[in-house]
């Protein structure tokens, strides 16, 4: 008798579980995945960073030039492209979707810099999306005349808060308050600078945009003028090509934040470019 009960139970189980008869579909949709908030397309504007980070595992190689002769010299200096030029190479890696570690080198006093950028806050909405990122920078001017390479005054440190928004999916605004310690490595006493960088980038088409970047010194030491740059950006599946004019030919962050040597104007504009490649 107990055996028959077991068989009956198993039989009932099969009839219930297996679809011997037509049944209603029980499957239902699940939520689709959402991605990180992305506003600016590149992690750089011209010399200032955007609040964007890379996708985890991405590597970005950067080469940038700022040509010393002004554009005004015309054909004789090939509008400045004959050089000389300040040159930067940079290599960035994203250990997570929210962090970038970047190592760069400029030929100006052999400035080596290490930057760590972390996307700290994002506000997703259609009207006023907001990204906030922190950027920390340590730079070593490893070749300064009449001074040992390891001298403490050869080191500079910077911190930035990067605030970005993108309106109508086309018009990007950025505000980048920055603090730089040891702004002028050649003075006796240690200087510092506080700048209030800002930029705007307008995405004209899918792959084309124009940008304007301004970095006024708000407090502390400054080279002669505030930095102003403007240019054009073209992007592809893995590249950014940026061409611009600027009055500031300093290229690594700790050098750029100190300001420009010439006033922004037709006589002093210099050409620059940046090419980045993502892997």
């Amino acid at each position: 008798m107990p055996g028959k009960l077991i068989y009956c139970a198993l039989l009932a189980n099969f009839l219930c579980i297996h679809s011997v008869w037509p049944q209603k579909i029980s499957w239902s949709h699940s939520e689709t995945s959402s991605s990180e908030l992305e506003l600016f397309h590149s992690i750089h504007v011209i010399s200032l960073p955007t609040a964007e980070t890379l996708q985890k595992g991405d590597v970005e190689f950067e080469i940038s030039h700022r040509f010393t002769p002004p554009v005004k010299k015309g054909y004789d200096a090939f509008w400045g492209l004959d050089g000389p030029a300040n040159i930067r190479f940079g290599l960035s890696y994203a250990p997570s979707n929210r962090m970038i570690i970047c190592l760069g080198r400029s030929n100006v006093t052999n400035n080596l810099d290490l930057q760590v950028r972390y996307k700290a806050f994002q506000l997703q909405n259609d009207v006023f999306p907001l990204l906030a990122t922190i950027n920390l920078n340590a730079a070593w001017n490893s070749s300064v005349d009449d001074r040992p390479n390891g001298d403490a005054r050869n080191f500079q440190y910077a911190a930035q808060v990067i605030l970005n928004t993108l309106l109508f999916k086309k018009l990007g605004f950025g505000f980048v308050p920055s603090y730089l310690y040891n702004s002028d490595i050649f003075t006796e006493d240690i200087k510092y600078s506080i700048t209030m960088g800002s930029y705007v980038q307008y995405y004209i088409a899918r792959f084309w945009s124009v940008m304007l970047e301004w970095n006024p010194t708000f407090y502390g030491w400054r080279n002669r003028y505030n930095a102003l740059s403007m240019g054009l950006e073209i992007e592809t599946g893995g590249h950014f090509f940026k061409v611009f004019v600027t009055n500031n030919i300093n290229i690594n962050l700790s050098q750029y934040l100190t300001g420009a040597d010439k006033k922004f104007g037709a006589n002093s504009l210099r050409l620059g470019f940046m090419i980045t490649r993502l892997f």
């Binding site: 992305e38 996708q55 991405d58 893995g238 993502l278 892997f279």
Partner: peptide
């Protein structure tokens, strides 16, 4: 939204 081409920019 979940497609990964290996480069974040291309995904975007």
């Amino acid at each position: 939204n979940s497609i990964d081409t290996g480069i974040g920019l291309r995904n975007r």
